[in-house]
Design a protein around this nucleic acid. Structure first.
Lengths: 219, 219
DNA sequence: ATTAATTTTTAGCCTAGACTAAAAATTAAT
DNA sequence: ATTAATTTTTAGTCTAGGCTAAAAATTAAT
């Protein structure tokens, strides 16, 4: 069966919402991320359930079926591979590629994405450190921590980000925080959980808990 | 102003039909190439005229305005650059890229296409020998002849094709006719205008007038 | 110069995917 | 355990872009 652009966007977003939790996903949370109204979401959920891509009961939320998951993973795979292409081959910065990849991820051609994968030398992660699902839908488990979970005086390496909005990425760039940076947690403020970090030999920098939560590291 | 996928397809096809002739373009000819019914075409022509991309009078056919031409050229530019990418970088054959490029041509990002252009080293022609419009909408004039116009015993070089359907391209490939081949016209059959060609040291091959018409050469 | 054939347009209908407003179900609060 | 607040669903509407069938204009043929 074939998927429309709208359906693909819904599946992708439902996948993202499922990732965090075992609970079923609410109509409202989907409405928020798709920028649609709840009524429109209900409509679409019924169609997706028809097609067997989600399980859905009125008022009880929604989950992806195995098939739905695979569709979502193939879109995520395409998105992330195109992002690697844009950064590695065309010279974009990591904060510039999301919007374009949102379009490219809907190009349908199995051979295309596999040739692209090979052309890029089978990358395992995208420019934000997010893992790239395999053709079979396997996601390499990377076991990263959120920077906000790292203990005082520990040192870690910046491996990725949990959010790829342009403003967030630009902030990191301004703070000189890029993939691979070595970070030492030199202070954790108990009041607001803000964090002070030492990057290599530089003066320590301060970041909010909100920022720390969205940085992924390996200890 | 922004263009929908449907509008872009119409503009592209109207451009192609305008190319050959000074006449205004008929509703039916557009219907044929877009695979829509004439009534749907009429609808769309009225919308395109509203937006100032075509001039259109009822029953009198249609032409692109300057703006419409520029939109069409930018889509053609994208289509052809992506085709170069698919063949040069991803290793596709020339008969496999049209469908995928039909999708990629609608990705909207001015920077993307210019970075791609630079990544590909500013190619002047696509894998079928068609010229790639510049960012400003200039088409390098190549001055090719149709092979059907070449005189007996003349020798020429295969520079492009006037049609890029997969079956046609596969036929050429099977006949060992590829871009750059040196061809000598050794016989022209006056009855059906079929042509006998010598390629390098090979035995002569026969091709129909229909095929010869769609091969572009430089004498 | 009519009539016939063809082409184009109009009118009305359909589907996907959005929306708003109102109704129904669920959850939270007294 | 009711009432209130919130969330979700239904019902009905809208737009883009298709369609068919019938009407109108153009072109071709007697």
């Amino acid at each position: 069966m074939t998927t429309s652009l709208a359906e693909e966007n819904y599946l992708k977003i439902i996948y993202r919402l499922c990732e965090g939790t075992k609970e079923d996903i609410s109509t409202n949370s989907i409405a928020e991320l798709t920028n649609n109204k709840a009524a429109s979401v209900t409509d679409m959920l019924q169609k997706l359930a028809e097609k067997g891509w989600v399980t859905y009961q009125k008022y009880q939320g929604v989950r992806l079926t195995k098939i739905g998951q695979n569709i979502a993973l193939s879109i995520i795979r395409k998105h992330r591979l195109w992002e690697v292409f844009l950064v590695e081959k065309l010279g974009y910065n990591w904060d510039e590629v999301h919007e374009i990849a949102e379009q490219l991820e809907h190009i349908e051609s199995e051979t295309l994405i596999n040739k692209l994968d090979s052309f890029l030398d089978f990358p395992k992660i995208d420019p934000h450190g997010d893992p790239i699902p395999s053709q079979e839908g396997e996601i390499p488990e990377l076991g990263y921590l959120h920077l906000s979970e790292v203990k005082l005086n520990e040192t870690c390496t910046l491996m990725g980000v949990a959010k790829d909005s342009a403003v967030f990425l630009q902030l990191l760039t301004k703070l000189n925080l890029s993939l691979g940076a070595r970070l030492e947690v030199v202070e954790i403020n108990t009041f607001d959980r803000s964090v002070s970090l030492k990057i290599a030999e530089q003066e320590p920098i301060f970041i909010s808990h909100e920022v720390a939560k969205n940085i992924l590291v390996k200890v």
